[in-house]
Design a protein around this nucleic acid. Structure first.
Length: 564
RNA sequence: GCCCUCGUAGCUCAACGGAUAGAGUAUCGGUCUUCGAAACCGAUGAUGCAGGUUCGAUUCCUGCCGAGGGCACCA
């Protein structure tokens, strides 16, 4: 609100000086001593009117001086022609009071009010491991969902799972070799054992497939049988394995704190996608070498041809995505559909979007592709084909153990929550798209720039407030001597808005670290509960920090335990 | 060969074309009989190379070097 007001003043000032159409920015200077807001308006306008930036800035300041209200303490020219604004402490106190009274709602906005948004993420594949790549997708998707929800949209979380396809056929081929009575007792086994079996079947099937052509043919046949549901035994084993995987994924979602509204499966989208492609054959798609393909380069020279239906008559990933898009819209008529994937499919997705534009342009226009980098070990890429992956479970367990070993007297459930926080934070702290070099010691850190550091700081605020009991908490403007902290806190809604607009949770992660650091510094240098006249003020600050951290952690999909 | 990303302290990451390029970690040195030391305070340390656009470039453009991904029936 302060921002809009200042922008209005600048606009008027420029107009009075006869300058129009300057797309200036009003931002917070990196260095807070420069002021609370700064604009480059004079520097941009100077070129237009052929004046020296500094003298023009002086003229603008002159005009601004005539109109600014009492909330603006001072307006000054600085550096090469910046105009810096200082805001009265009372303004910050007023906004912080609002934060305290808003509680859980602090930080939200209504820019997406009335919009329906579907976010698809995680997307693990039944019969395969839930590995750290899925963990990454989950962390990003969950956070994005929360961020968009905080902008007032109605968000539905969707998970798309590959329950058919070659990877499944490989596992099933190996399952077929087990004796009949094995399957009689299988359903009664504990989940952990069933999973271990399933894993070994997948590995064995993959090994067979890669060991020679004579093994590939039967697996392709099984693949087809799964699609067509034409073989009773195959279908039976398929559903058994699928069920086990889904049960396992459910335990992961619980641990991670995700609750999906919709589950979509490739077994459904495949049939549908194939239908869409067939209907548009001759119009959008063409037959080539026995397969049905889309020549995307005809529409955009940077794209390439991709197969949508294989010569065996099976829909590929691309065709399934078409079916998925349609199915999603039927399930939930969205305004925006966000699909989160790894960046290795970036080029396919561009082709896919082009095909969508040809078939259902209205859906294509609503689809946004958000890709994340790969999770890589310092030693290189991790592979799931041979089974030598780092599973989500092993990673989360390792994080938990590390914390239990290094932090004296932690409860197990706290260590577990902090472990999840550490992993999620390590993904969310950096901008999207780039690979994440996953170094165990760095990424599972619970010191400094980490998820547990945020949780710890929140617990600290909670503990102080608890100790304070019913002593007064108040903001009065007079005691605003704690510089950066109140000014930083007030920016929370702006940060949320930006994260939502740019679909970038890392802005929130970085901001929260700054808040936590500022609070810990304040905490280390000040005694809050000292009975002095500014104690109510300090308590109010502490409370505002707590609310901001808690809401911010929620936006990252990270829990905020009251005690650690 | 073509297309897409990306090169910032020893390491992992920030920086909405702006002011003195910020953090964490590592290293060195301080701080617990006082609200939670998973913390705080201090020190050291960086924009791959060469041009260009701009009042101003880590950011935009071109070339080079380097890394990763993709380029027809796996996803």
């Amino acid at each position: 609100m302060m921002k809009e007001r200042l922008e209005g003043y600048i606009d008027e000032a420029l107009k009075e000086l006869g300058i129009a159409d300057v797309s200036f920015v009003l931002e917070h200077p990196d260095d807070m001593t420069h002021g609370d807001w700064a604009t480059n308006a004079a520097m941009l306008a100077a070129k237009k009117v052929g004046k020296n930036p500094k003298t023009l800035a002086e003229e603008i300041v002159q005009k601004l001086g005539e109109k600014k209200d009492t909330d603006v303490l001072s307006v000054e020219v600085a550096g090469p022609g910046f105009i810096n604004f200082k805001i009265a402490p009372a303004v910050f106190d007023k906004e912080l009071s609002a934060a305290i009274s808003q509680g859980d709602k602090w930080g939200r906005n209504e820019t997406l009010k009335g919009k329906k948004v579907m976010v698809e993420y995680t997307d693990p594949n039944p019969f395969k491991e839930f590995h750290i790549g899925h963990l990454m997708s989950n962390a990003i998707g969950e956070s994005l969902s929360c961020v968009i929800e905080a902008s007032g949209a109605e968000v539905k979380r969707a998970c798309y799972q590959g329950d058919v396809g070659l990877h499944v056929a490989k596992a099933v081929s190996s399952m077929l070799e087990q004796p009949e009575d094995f399957w009689d007792s299988f359903p009664a086994l504990p989940l952990k054992e069933r999973l271990a079996y399933l894993g070994s079947f997948y590995v064995a099937g993959t090994y067979a497939y890669e060991s020679g052509e004579k093994w590939q043919k039967p697996i392709h046949e099984i693949n087809k049988k799964i699609y067509e549901k034409s073989d009773k035994k195959v279908s039976f084993l398929h559903s058994l394995g699928r069920k086990t995987s889904l049960e396992y994924f459910e335990t992961m979602y619980q641990r991670l704190g995700t609750k999906f509204d919709f589950n979509f499966f490739e077994s459904e989208t495949g049939v549908r996608g194939k239908g869409i492609v067939t209907e548009n054959k001759g119009k959008v798609f063409e037959e080539s070498e026995g397969a049905i393909v889309f020549h995307a380069e005809k529409f955009n020279p940077k794209l390439h041809t991709r197969v949508f239906i294989s010569k065996e008559g099976l829909p590929t990933y691309e065709a399934k995505e078409l079916g998925l898009a349609e199915k999603k819209y039927e399930t939930f008529p969205y305004d925006v559909s966000i699909v989160i994937t790894g960046n290795e499919v970036n080029d396919y997705f561009q082709v896919l979007l082009e095909a969508m534009r040809q078939i259902f342009p209205e859906l294509a226009a609503k689809t946004e592709h958000y890709s994340h980098g790969m999770l890589r070990l310092p030693t290189g890429k991790m592979s799931s084909r041979t089974g030598d992956v780092i599973t989500a479970t092993s990673l989360l367990d390792k994080a938990k153990e590390l914390i239990m070993k290094n932090v004296e007297g932690v409860m197990e459930d706290v260590a577990k929550a902090a472990g999840v926080a550490a992993v999620k934070y390590s993904v969310l702290r950096q901008a999207s798209g780039k690979d994440i070099i996953f170094d165990f010691d760095q990424s599972l850190s619970f010191e400094g720039d980490s998820g547990p550091y945020l949780q710890y700081t929140y617990a600290r605020t909670h503990s102080v407030l608890e100790k304070a009991g019913n002593t007064p908490v108040a903001l009065d403007g007079e005691h605003n001597n704690y510089g950066a902290l109140p000014k930083l806190l007030v920016r929370f809604p702006e940060v949320v808005l930006r994260a939502s607009r740019e679909r970038e949770p890392h802005y929130i992660a970085n901001y929260l670290i700054e808040v936590a650091r500022e609070f810990n510094s304040f905490y280390g240098n000040t005694t809050i509960l000292d009975g002095a006249s500014d104690q109510p003020y300090k308590l109010a600050l502490t409370k505002a920090v707590g609310i901001t951290l808690k809401n911010g952690l929620w936006l990252l999909g990270i829990t905020a335990p009251a005690k650690m």
